[in-house]
Every structure is written in C-alpha cells, then in structure tokens.
C-alpha cells in the first residue's frame, strides 16, 4: 500500500512551538516578581506549596499569552518582530492556541486555588481575563494608552504571590503592583521611540504614531516622575528598610534624570547619536525593576537575620 502524505506547506508544530505560545520571556519576569511577592510576605509557605504557587501563576500568565496570540494573530502576521510566532507562521492553528490558552487558564486557576487559597486564584483568574479580554480584545486596538492598561496585567504577579502566602491583599501588595504599573509605560515608550515598529501597518495605535514623538517623550518623563514617590513609599512600608530606601531613592532619581534627558531631546538629536539616550534609558529601566524587587528580597533576608527592616 502506498503511503499517503499531505504537505500543506506549514511545518508541523513541535513541542517548543507550544512553549512559544506561552511567551516564555514574559513568564520569566512573572516568575521573578511573583517569587519576590511570595517570599517577602510575612507568612511562610511550605516550599512545595510555594513552588506550586509560582508554577501556576506563571502558567496562568502563559495561558493569557496563548489567548493573546490567538486573538492577535492578524496583527502579529503584519509585524516583522512577531511574524515568526507559532500562529501567524502557521505551525499552530488559531483554534489550537485558543484551546491551549483556555485549558491552561482553567488548570492554573484551579490548581493555584487548591495549592494556596481562593483569593489568589481569583486574582489570577482576573489577571488572565484582564490581559486576554480587557487588554487584547478591548483596548489594545482602540487607545494609545494601551501600554498603560497592559501594564496593569503585568503588575499583578507580585500581588498574587503575596496573596498566595497571606490570603489577603494589603498595602504592600498594592504598592508592588503600583511600582510595576507606573514603570511599564516609560519602559515601553522608550522602546517605541527607537524601535520604530510597523504598528501603523497593523493598525495598533501606539502613542508614538498617534500623538507623535514629542508627546511620547513628555509621557516618559511624567511617568518616571510619578514612579519615584510610589517606589519610595513602597520602601517605607514593611517591604523595605534603610537599605531598600537608599536603593529606591537612588535608582528613582536616576530614572527621573533619564526621563528628563529623553524629554530634552528632539528627533534630530536622537537621530544624530542613533537613539543612544533612549536605548540607555530602556536598558536602565530593566535594571531598575530588577534591582528594586531584588532589594525587597534582600531586605526580607536581612530581617530574618535580625538586620534590616524598619
């Protein structure tokens, strides 16, 4: 009997393509911030519970990523950076991405609820809903403030980590949320200034396209200035201590200075040095968030040894 093979052009999806659906790079940031939220909380979880909590928070974030890839396949197909993703490249069908996203959403929420508590599970469910429905389906294609709204979804993981340990939302959890929420817009708009992506082809209203680069520079500065008091307030709560306060003040001042440098420049100056200042600000913004959250962790470790804290 002759063997029949069908070649439909698209290469078959491997296991890695399904992993790509979950946006592993975003997940790594989620793992880090959720882990910090969980470890700095005043309640200790058993290591197995803590591991399960982080795993299912990350899986929930991955599920939201898969739903986003299902919904945004049309946009992704039009932009160079995202054209190679599993759905637009045809390796994974849209309905498969939808299925993976829905199944993992359910598994991650139920398992987080069983491993820790229902408040954390509810927050995770809300985060997935917020990212997939409110952001991806709702506001991303409508408003140039889409980055601000998407940032809220990225700001939830440390709060969920905290709630997984303590069972309730407190000021510290809200402030960790607020730090990431205020940090996201300047971080992404700095990137938008020098990446010059083809958002307009895809019809996504990016601030650089809708309101111009001048307005974007103003926005970067305003958010950098607004972030500073939030970060310093967070360091003044039980999250921080003298060490965290010093780190937060120092980094925030430097962040505001970076925002000011961006605001001061126009496109001719930026073109002249190939967006050196914008690129440096973007790199520093990554360092900023990492070091601030690492400082909460260091402060918590110091407190365990009778040092640090207020």
């Amino acid at each position: 009997m002759a063997e029949t093979r069908i070649f439909d052009g698209a290469p078959e999806a491997g296991f890695g393509d399904y992993v790509q659906l979950l946006k592993p790079r975003v997940m790594s940031l989620v793992v880090f911030t959720a882990l910090v939220g969980l470890l700095v909380a005043p309640v200790r979880l058993h290591p197995v519970e803590a591991f399960a909590a982080i795993l299912f928070i990350a899986l929930g974030a991955g599920a939201a990523g898969a739903l986003n890839m299902w919904w945004d396949a049309d946009i992704d197909a039009m932009m160079k950076r995202t054209r190679g993703r599993p759905v637009p490249s045809g390796r994974v069908t849209g309905s498969e991405a939808l299925g993976v996203g829905m199944a993992l959403s359910g598994i991650s929420v139920v398992m987080l609820g069983l491993a820790t508590n229902l408040v954390a599970a509810g927050l995770l469910a809300f985060t997935i809903f917020f990212y997939a429905v409110v952001y991806s389906m709702g506001l991303k294609r409508i408003t140039p403030q889409n980055i601000v709204i998407g940032g809220a979804a990225g700001a939830f993981p440390p709060m969920i980590g905290w709630v997984a340990a303590t069972g309730s939302v407190s000021l510290e959890a809200v402030l960790m949320f607020a730090v990431i929420f205020m940090w996201t817009p300047p971080h992404f708009w700095a990137l938008a200034l020098f990446m010059k992506e083809d958002y307009h082809t895809a019809g996504v209203p990016m601030l650089t396209v809708t309101h111009g680069r001048r307005v974007t520079r103003v926005h970067v500065l305003v958010y950098a200035v607004l972030l500073a008091p939030v970060a310093i307030w967070a360091a003044a709560t039980s999250l921080g201590g003298p060490f965290t306060m010093a780190v937060s003040i120092g980094l925030s001042l430097w962040f505001v200075k970076g925002g000011f440098d961006i605001w001061r420049r126009d496109e001719t100056m930026a073109e002249a040095d190939k967006y050196a200042v914008e690129k440096a600000f973007f790199r520093f913004s990554l360092l900023y968030l990492f070091v601030i959250f690492a400082a909460y962790l260091v402060e918590a470790a110091l407190k365990l040894n009778g040092l640090g804290g207020w």
Binding site: V48, E49, F51, A52, L114
Partner: peptide, 13 residues
C-alpha cells in the same frame, strides 16, 4: 508528582 507532593504536605500538616 506535584499533586502527590502537595497532598503529602497538606495531609501531614
């Protein structure tokens, strides 16, 4: 393995 480990932790506690 994870569900089993969680069960052991929660039951023994």
């Amino acid at each position: 393995a994870l569900v089993f480990a969680l069960t052991v932790v929660k039951v023994t506690r």
